[in-house]
Design a protein around this nucleic acid. Structure first.
Length: 809
RNA sequence: GCCCGAGUGGCGGAACUGGUAUACGCGCACGACUUAAAAUCGUGUCUCGCAAGGGAUGUGGGUUCGAUUCCCACCUCGGGCACCA
């Protein structure tokens, strides 16, 4: 038999599969569907390291098994290519970002295709393609033109036109809608009609699910640009500075677009019940949304003026009068989840941005200190600040405030007694949906001279990104689009969409990637419905995975998709870290390149190794030394085929046949639960057995190749064809999934362990049909057992069927 | 701090629903083949002990005939904690 030449075999079959299109998704919809999806990558310039394909290989194994089992499998791949890294790359290399993307995609695709992944490449999507982002813009407009009806009968998004109708008929007094928390204007129908267009627009903006507002951003005056959090580092003194240049960074308010994701808080929590995701990710999302019930209580305040010694002056009297008015009209509203401990409250701390701090500034003794403190906080991140005030007791101790032991009362009772109310709060905030950058989807809105906003119509989409001379920020905080005269003249929005826009719905586009009339046809959506198996990193728990659910629920509300949740099952692959225990990174010089591994050991070995090295969802350290084990295993498989070929009429020994069918069962179950490491381990054992017997029938070896196929598709296909000889059958990968024979895995004899007082003392080899009575009797008569019982009275005897007998004396 | 998750040989890890702890692989040791080496094949490989047997799944308790698995406390590590792809 020839040597196992992985390079030759892998090239040969990749070409063949490409030509025969065996991985192409069936367009006929009579078969049962199965949608296996990878989180599509951001094609960075650095290329892949061996950690990247782990998830892709896992989902590929799963998809291949489903395909062989007869499902119509949708297993696509695409690119999420808008965003900062491509823009930076373009600035550095002085090329257009779209060229940078094209280069990176090519590198990426070359590396991916080497691994033998069974994608249907004809369905590839790219978020930066105008034909794609036309529909990202379309979805944005749907969201912009919607409001959230919170009433129990609806509890969903509805068109903004329906809200306007309600305003015209009844004003806004009786609607239960999600709107801006600070918006408290109530108007009648006739008042609404009397408003100007600008007034109407500004009211509607309080209700829209995509709305304009202001938010704190990281502003770097020296660079004249807004920075993302990961572009900011701390300097020696702990102050935030830009990573590039080390210039000071401050927080400033800036105009932004937002998505009213908070309207969906409850549904995003409740929906977790019905999807099969890891409890870990669900927990992260729940924490992120942060629903909590608590009490809202107002504290009246009293400003105490320190009078100067000596007789009271008229000035003092005036001040006193002012204070009385102030004290009677001002209160501080607080939120607490522990109203039962309210008697323990001995002090109150105001947030530095609280308006009272400013209002009462003339009463503050140490005003300069306070001001300095506020200033120092201004540039700290939200997390840095909130960490402190939780430790109330420590705070009190630090500043010498009294601590009162807290009497127990009922939280609800006390809240009502003091005139507060029980409220539900959420930690989650609305999502900022704008970047002051060039390389993103243009937001399809126009600002008119009169202050109103016009949404583009579908026929005018896509609103394409104009070419610009420079992608550098223009120094005003606006995106480079603000320096394009034609763009500004038309009044187009200069903010672009954030990176998560295009990735929030891409899985729908794969269903019908070339449709020009809709993001996907109704038929395609009705057939594919949702993702059956989604594989990706858990680092997207509070980003992509939350935004996608939000958009999907919105699309569902508006009747655009047939399901309420996009991803039925989610599995997260663990990180592959470098052998030195650190993340693989150029910075540490510990990157292992998959190209090298494929060249030396072959793609099949890489695939087997990555699936074998540990549990799929667990982080594991790369160890190049260990790869040889996976390579040896495949060589054993290679050699094993010669035992099948040596005599075409030979039968498989009965015991080996039993092993084979047990392995088929085990591998089938393990792929289903993504326990790839134990699936491979059981196949290794089978190969070891075949090596021992050195006889197996061709048909049995073919069964083995079928279960190996998802893991090592190239070598399996090569041997499959070798064993088929002149027969010209279908590719192994569409040859069906073997079903184990129930009768063939029954053991005639079993080993039963005997324990005396909880310790294993001996084993009995018995017929599997033995009764409980018989085995107990056998155990009690056993010589070894008798020695341990030593004439003592047997108090108890327990039999666990087919496993052990436990004797207590 | 709060909320999750995890700690098993020299290393990666296995163990069904509470039922023989250490499967499978790497490494290592010895042997076979070879002039030799590599590759391959075989044997061994938690620990103490000559053996009989004892002890080990982060630490200390508990429940049970029986605990890696369940409960309590602690230690260590990893992740999440308001926008970051």
């Amino acid at each position: 038999m020839k040597e196992y030449d992985h390079t030759k075999i892998e090239k040969k079959w990749q070409k063949e599969w490409d030509t025969t299109e065996i991985y192409k998704t069936d367009s006929a919809t009579t078969k049962k569907k199965f949608y296996v999806l990878d989180m599509f990558p951001y094609p960075s310039g650095a290329g892949l390291h061996v950690g990247h394909p782990r998830g892709y290989i896992g989902s590929d194994v799963y998809a291949r098994m489903k395909r062989m089992a007869g499902y119509n499998v949708l297993h696509p791949m695409g690119y999420d290519a808008f965003g900062l890294p491509a823009e930076q790359y373009a600035i550095e290399h002085k090329i257009h970002p779209s060229n940078a993307v094209a280069i990176n995609v090519a590198t990426f695709e070359k590396q991916l295709s080497m691994i033998g992944l069974s994608y249907d490449w004809s369905r590839k999507v790219n978020t930066t393609d105008p034909a794609y982002y036309k529909w990202t813009q379309w979805i944005f407009l749907e969201i912009y033109n919607s409001w959230y009806d919170k009433s129990a009968s609806a509890n969903k998004a509805r068109p903004i036109s329906e809200l306007i109708e309600i305003f015209i008929k009844n004003g806004n007094a009786n609607i239960d809608a999600v709107c801006d928390i600070n918006f408290n204007i109530v108007f009648t129908a006739s008042e609404w009609v009397s408003y100007t267009e600008v007034e109407k627009e500004s009211i509607l903006m309080k209700y829209r699910l995509a709305y304009e507002g202001y938010a704190l951003v990281n502003w770097c005056p020296n660079l004249g640009t807004v920075l993302a959090n990961d572009e900011i580092v701390d300097d020696k003194d702990g102050n935030p500075v830009s990573e590039r240049g080390g210039h000071p960074v401050e927080k400033v308010q800036m105009r932004q677009w937002f998505m009213r994701i908070t309207a969906y808080s409850d549904r995003l929590i409740d929906g977790l019940e019905n999807i099969e995701w890891s409890t870990h990710i669900k927990e992260i999302q729940r924490n992120w949304i942060g629903k909590s019930e608590g009490s809202e209580i107002s504290f009246n305040i009293r400003v105490v003026k320190k009078f100067s010694s000596g007789p009271r002056t008229r000035e003092d009297e005036e001040l006193d009068h002012e204070e009385n008015i102030f004290n009677n009209s001002t209160s501080i509203k607080i939120f607490t989840t522990r109203a039962d401990t309210i008697f323990g409250a001995t002090y109150m701390v105001l947030a530095p941005e609280h308006t009272l701090v400013e209002e009462l500034s003339n009463r503050i003794d140490n005003l300069p200190e306070v001001k300095a403190y506020i200033l120092s906080l201004k540039n700290k991140s939200e997390a840095d600040r909130t960490k402190n005030d939780k430790r109330d007791r420590e705070f009190a101790t630090k500043f010498n405030l009294p601590i009162v032991d807290k009497p127990l009362v009922d939280a609800k009772e006390i809240t009502e007694k003091v005139g507060g109310k029980i409220v539900t709060k959420y930690k989650m905030r609305d999502a900022i949906f704008a970047r002051q950058r060039y390389w993103g989807e243009p937001i399809p809105l126009k600002h008119n001279a009169d202050g109103t906003i016009t949404a583009l119509e579908e026929k005018d989409l896509p609103l394409e990104l104009p070419n610009v001379d420079s992608y550098e920020p223009i120094g005003t905080g606006e995106s480079p689009l603000g320096s394009v005269p034609s763009w500004v003249k038309e009044g187009y929005e200069t903010n672009t969409m954030p990176g998560w826009a295009g990735s929030s719905w891409y899985f729908l586009r794969y269903m019908d990637p070339n449709n020009n009339n809709a993001f996907a046809s109704e038929e395609a959506l009705e057939y594919w419905k949702d993702v059956d198996m989604y594989v990706g990193g858990q680092e997207h728990a509070t980003g992509h995975l939350l935004y996608s659910r939000f958009w999907h629920k919105f699309l569902y509300d508006r009747g655009h998709v047939p399901t309420d949740e996009p991803f039925k099952v989610l599995r997260n692959q663990g990180l592959i870290i470098a052998s030195d225990g650190r993340k693989m990174s150029k910075r540490w010089g510990n990157v292992v390149n998959p190209d090298e591994i494929v060249k030396t050991y072959g793609a099949d070995t890489l695939r087997v190794y990555e699936m074998f090295m540990g549990p799929f969802d667990q982080a594991v350290a790369w160890n190049t030394q260990s790869i040889i084990g996976s390579r040896r295993f495949l060589e054993k498989v290679w050699k094993g085929s010669s035992y099948a070929l040596q005599n075409k009429t030979q039968q498989t020994p009965e015991d080996l046949e039993k092993e084979l069918h047990k392995t088929i069962k085990k591998v089938s179950e393990d792929i289903e639960t993504m326990s790839f490491n134990t699936a491979i381990s059981s196949m290794m054992m089978l190969s070891n057995q075949i090596e021992k017997y050195k006889i197996i029938s061709i048909s049995d070896y073919k069964l083995y190749l079928q279960i190996l196929a998802p893991f090592a598709p190239h070598i399996a296909e090569e041997l499959w064809n070798l064993l088929n000889g002149d027969e010209n059958g279908p590719s192994l990968h569409i040859s069906g999934w073997p079903i184990f024979d129930e009768k063939k895995i029954i053991d005639d004899t079993i080993i039963v362990v005997v324990q005396v007082n909880g310790k294993v003392r001996t084993q009995l080899s018995v017929e599997s049909t033995i009764s409980e009575e018989q085995i107990k009797e056998l155990a009690l008569k056993d010589k070894v057992v008798l020695g341990w019982i030593d004439g003592k009275e047997v108090k108890k005897i327990i039999y666990v069927k087919g496993r052990l007998v436990s004797i207590v004396v």
